[in-house]
Computed example of a mutant assay.
Amino acid sequence: MTMTASVAPTVTDYEASADLATLVVRTAQDDEVKFAAEQLRLACKCAHCTRARIDGRFPERFPGIAITGIGDLGYGLNISFSDGHNRGIYPKIYLLSLAGH
């Protein structure tokens, strides 16, 4: 019986696009994955956003939102947005799951 191990993609690099509307993530497997800033803002799992969802106060859209900062925490990225939200930590494995990896 032969078993093959599947290797999960690993984030090696990232950057915001020049217009700050997209996060570009590169993996060790030479994939380049792009995330719209609005997609990331909508996917935030921080306590504040989770509570807003429970209370029915979370917006359905964030039109025109931009990425204003990215902090690397090792296991994930802390992404700041133009609406002032900077509480979200996006584990790298979570980011890749958003892209279907």
Rank of each mutant, 00 (worst) to 15 (best):
L40M: 14
K34G: 04
I65E: 00
K92H: 11
R57I: 01
A37W: 02
G69K: 09
V25Y: 04
Q39L: 14
A36L: 12
C49P: 00
L95T: 04
L23C: 07
C46D: 07
M1N: 09
I70D: 00
L42W: 10
T50H: 10
V25R: 03
R87F: 03
G84R: 06
I70N: 02
E15K: 13
E60P: 00
Y94Q: 08
G56V: 14
G56M: 15
I65S: 01
R57E: 06
S17K: 11
V33N: 04
L96M: 08
P63Q: 05
L40R: 09
D83E: 03
L40A: 13
P9E: 15
I70G: 01
F62E: 03
L23H: 07
H48W: 02
L95G: 02
N86E: 11
V24I: 15
H101R: 14
R87Q: 12
E38A: 03
S17V: 12
G64N: 10
G100S: 02
Q39D: 11
D72K: 09
K45E: 14
S97H: 05
A28P: 00
V11W: 01
R53W: 03
D55W: 11
T10S: 12
G56Y: 15
P63M: 05
G74M: 03
L77W: 00
F58N: 08
E60G: 11
G56K: 13
R53M: 11
S6E: 08
V24M: 06
L20W: 10
T12N: 15
I67S: 12
T4L: 13
E15Q: 14
A5Q: 08
T68W: 04
T12R: 14
P9R: 13
R57L: 10
T22H: 15
V24D: 01
A43W: 04
I67M: 11
L40D: 11
L20P: 00
P91L: 07
D30L: 09
G56P: 15
I67V: 12
L98W: 09
L73Y: 05
V7K: 15
T68E: 08
F35M: 07
E15P: 01
G69R: 09
H48L: 05
A16W: 04
L40G: 12
P63V: 07
P59F: 10
L23M: 06
I54Q: 13
D30Q: 15
L77D: 02
D31P: 01
T50Y: 06
F81S: 01
T27E: 02
A99C: 05
A8E: 14
A28N: 15
D72C: 04
D31M: 12
C44P: 07
D55C: 10
T68P: 08
H48T: 08
G76K: 10
H48K: 06
K45C: 10
F58P: 01
M3Y: 12
H48G: 03
V24Y: 01
T2L: 12
R87A: 12
Q29F: 09
L23A: 08
Q29N: 13
G69L: 10
P9G: 12
I93N: 02
E60F: 02
M1R: 08
A66D: 00
C46K: 05
